[in-house]
């Protein structure tokens, strides 16, 4: 079967199977390797994408289920002003070590700030509960998200 959807602003069509996770459709079939494969059990958040603008774990979505929908990864937000601020803050604050969790973390943070431009520290912590980072201990990630929010608001 074929699935048609909007990926990072472009209409795409790909042949797929009913039991193909969106994660594999993106990484293997369409070459979007910024989406990371971690646990494949919905627990780590490394495979996070925005599906119709909300974060989901792509390992638990079936490829045919995105028919007609919009899928966004960090690649589709390269020129987005909010994502630019987040990237900058992550780099400057040292919120990245190995980087494996970073694409998912950025997308979750992006969705949070879109909805709530001025979150409290607690709200940031709550928002990233579904994204595991094995390196940073989260402190600098939380700081970076708060810093990015502050910079957007200051503009």
């Amino acid at each position: 079967m074929n699935v048609r959807f909007t990926l990072n602003g472009k209409d795409v069509e790909s042949e797929t199977r009913d039991n193909r996770p969106l994660l594999d459709l993106l990484r293997v079939d369409l070459g979007v390797t910024s989406v990371k494969k971690g646990c494949e059990y919905g627990e780590c958040g490394a495979c996070t994408v925005l599906l119709d603008e909300v974060p989901v774990t792509s390992c638990l979505v079936l490829a045919p289920q995105v028919e007609g929908k919009t899928v966004t990864t960090i690649d589709g937000l390269v020129d987005d002003p909010l994502m630019e601020k987040l990237r900058q803050a992550f780099l400057e604050d040292g919120a990245i070590q190995c980087g494996f969790c970073t694409p998912g973390m950025l997308l979750t943070a992006y969705a949070l700030l879109k909805e709530n431009p001025n979150p409290t520290e607690l709200e940031v912590k709550k928002a990233i509960e579904g994204n595991i980072c094995r390196c940073t201990g989260y402190v600098l990630i939380i700081k970076a998200i708060l810093d990015a929010a502050e910079r957007v608001l200051a503009e």
């Binding site: 919905g42 599906l51 989901v56 774990t57 979750t108 990233i128 509960e129 579904g130």
Partner: peptide
């Protein structure tokens, strides 16, 4: 329940 990604699905 879960994290935000799980709650959305």
């Amino acid at each position: 329940v879960g994290g935000v990604q799980i709650r959305n699905r």
